[in-house]
Structures are given as C-alpha cells and as structure tokens.
Nucleic acid binder design. Structure first.
Lengths: 214, 214
DNA sequence: GCGGACATTGTCCGTTCGGACAATATGCCC
DNA sequence: GGGCATATTGTCCGAACGGACAATGTCCGC
C-alpha cells in the first residue's frame, strides 16, 4: 500500500485526485494539505511515502515546501503536480529534490505511473523533459542562479503582490510602513532573482509561478 | 437526468469534476471541452442543459465563451467554475449571463446544489456574492463598462503580451512596426478596459484572464 | 451613406521608475 | 565571533511612463 498525500489549494483538484488515486488498489490517500505550510505539518504526522505537490499555492509555494521537505523528510518522494509546462519552474522543482513532474492535463495512467515510480525511488520523466533537465542553460532562459536566490522572501512577495495590484512605490511604502527607497530595494532584488528589469515582467513571472494567488 | 458539460483546460479538474458529478444519480456528464472554442462546438452537438465553465483558458477565455453561448444557446445554464474569488471577474461573468458562480475550493455539496439550481433556471449565490452583484459600483472597483469593451483586440493583446515580457514601449513599437505613441494608445485602451492605470496591474489582470498563455 | 469599432500618430507635462554609487542593523547558523 | 541572508534607508539622474488635450484613415455592417 502506497501512502500518498495531496497538497493543492483547490478542493476540487484534491477531490479529483483522491478519486482518481482510489481507483488504484495499491494506493492509499492519507491526507490533504491546502498549502506548503500545512503540507509540512501533516507530513510529520501522516508519514506519507509520496506527496503530490502543487507549485502555485498561497502562504508557502511548492518550491519552498519541497526544499523544506528535502531537508526534514528526505525519504518522502515528491511528485510535482502543476498547471504550467514552464521550463525553469519544472527544472527548479526537480533541482529542489522532486522525483517527478506531472502536468494537470496528464492522463490518469500517467499520474498513477508517476506515483508508482516515485514510491520505488525512481523518477518518471517524459523524454523531452529529461532532455531539458540534462541541458541546464540551453538557449534563452537566464539560467537560474542558485536555489536560495531564486525564491522570494516574504517581504519581497508582499511588495510584488502590491505591485501587481497596480500600486505605486509610494503607495506600497505607505501600506507596509517603510520608505519608498526600501520598496525599490525589494523590487530590484526581485528583478535580479527573476532575471527581469521591469515590474511588468516581474508581475508576469510571478503570475507564472503562481505567486499572485491567481 | 441533467445533462452537464464540463469546460476546463485541466484534465485532472475535468476528471475530478466528472467523478464528483457521477456521485449524483440525476446528473449525466455528456462531454468535456478544453477551452471556450471547443465548448461552443460541443455545445451545439451535445445539447447540454448545464455547462460548468472555467474562466481561465487558452484560445478563448470563459467570459467570451459565455457571451457567445448566451447569444447562440440562451437555454443553456452556465455555472462559472474558477479559481479566483475576484470581484470584477465574478460580476462580469454573471453579467454576461452565467447562472451561478463556484470557486474551485467549493465543497462537493455546493457544486451539486449549484448545478441543480442552474438546471431549474435558478441561480445559487452565496449571500455576500449576491450583495456585491446588487451593489454594482460599491466601493473601489471601477464597475466594468459594457461587454464589448471588456475584450481586448488582437493588437491590444500583442502589445500587452510584449509588455508582460518586460519590453519598453519603444521596443514594442519597433517590433510591431508602429510608433511609440500608438503603443501608448493601445495600452491606455487596455487600462480602461481592465480598470487599471499601470502596465503592472494590466499584466496581472491579463495573467488572471489567462491571456498570457501561462 | 453613415455610424461604430479599430488602428494609427502628434505634443506636452508631471510623475514614476530603474540603475548607480552606496551604508547600517538584525538575526541565525556554524 | 564571523559570515550570510534579510530588511532597511539615502541621493542623484536619465529614461520611461501615464494622462490630457487631440486628429485621421480604414473597414464593416445596417
């Protein structure tokens, strides 16, 4: 019996996954978490072998959760389950220690196969994804610097979410109780991490990473 | 037997919905569409009574699809099913003719209740959502102008997607073979349609609407 | 033909933004 | 104690942006 935990912020996705997984007679869904923070809590209590992990969640995003899980529960296999077929997000997830990667438009068979492989300590990757993992900084992508430098801090996330709402630096500063200069500092840090040089592009990247809750 | 069609770009969401719906013995899932365009095609063939409609999809977004459905198949009840508890998106969907609104983190009961209500020609709204619908331009939101004015033109979409890549007006102008002033005109038109006043906010709205392919 | 939607371009001006120089303080881990 | 990450703030400047006045031409449907 493979003990599987589901981490996704959408109830319908969780229910759908649970029902799909229950069609396999060797899989047991032991719990569900709605974000990265709850995932870490439940992982300690429920002792899952495999965690299906969404990457776009509130409170704590999937990448951050994976990094924590790798550190605290290295024996748990993590299968990334996300909407986006986005190169750097996928590669970052795998670099962070995930053992599989599945798009939400994957078939039921693919999903079950990936879980079975993960439970055996193997990783199931589609050939084209494997190729991308093997070719780190292939063509256009700005080649993610290091792991820590590619995750936003809480403060940076606050600033970026405010910017995505169209707020000016002055407005953001007032709401956060800091100066405009500090807002600019956070933004420049964000730009560096995302490899962009404008708030519009930063917002697009954030949306892509699911950091805006949309 | 209520004939229900599902429109969502994620297979797992579709499967999850199908399995949930099949737990009700008076509901029949007659088909699934992956985007607004396919939804229109299948609606003509499958004759559904209720359509569960995601709002964030490629090719044709949910709002546009609803507008077409209202025109071509006014007898079909549409229940919006989306990730976002976003005021103007919700209101626009309902104004466009949807008969219900459900967040993806709704419970199974809520989902089934909404479908039953929609099939009877009724609309099931949570009280707080009803209040917002009844108070059009209540607090901050700029109260969407008209239907046609809320859809971007091809040119505007090109400009906005370029902006989301971090391109400056000058850069966008060069690539599109127009002047910088024209780019600004398109942007201002976009701002008006989206009810924002900055490219960062416009990009966020675009991402939310699924216009950026992410 | 005439209105409407769409695409295009012009100027001026005040505000905002991003980059280039920075520095300081705090808290945590080794 | 010595790093390291994080958060904070300062000034200056050129470029970019958004809004306020606009106007012109095309194409399509009624």
């Amino acid at each position: 019996m493979i003990r599987v935990m589901i981490t996704d912020d959408h109830l319908i996705v969780r229910e759908g996954l649970r029902l799909i997984l229950e069609t396999a007679d060797d899989i047991e869904v032991v719990g569900e978490a709605v974000d990265g923070a709850e995932c870490l809590e439940l992982a300690a209590k429920l002792n899952p072998q495999v965690i299906l992990m969404d990457l776009q969640m509130p409170r704590m995003d999937g990448i951050t959760a994976i990094e924590h899980l790798r550190k605290d529960f290295p024996e748990i296999a993590i299968v990334i389950l996300t909407t986006y077929n986005e190169d750097d997000l996928m590669i970052r997830g795998l670099q962070s220690g995930a053992r599989g990667y599945l798009l939400k438009d994957s078939s039921r068979e693919n999903l079950l196969d990936a879980i079975h492989a993960a439970a055996k300590g193997e990783t199931l990757l589609k050939p084209e994804i494997l190729a991308r993992v093997l070719a780190p900084q292939a063509q256009g992508k700005p080649a993610a610097t290091t792991q820590t430098e590619s995750t936003l801090t809480e403060r940076e996330l606050e600033v970026l979410q405010s910017a995505a709402r169209g707020e000016r630096n002055k407005e953001i500063a007032y709401k956060l109780g800091i100066t405009e200069r500090t807002v600019k500092a956070h933004l420049q840090s964000i730009y560096q991490k995302f490899g962009v040089d404008s708030r519009a592009a930063a917002v697009a990247v954030a949306a892509q990473k699911g950091l805006l809750g949309i």
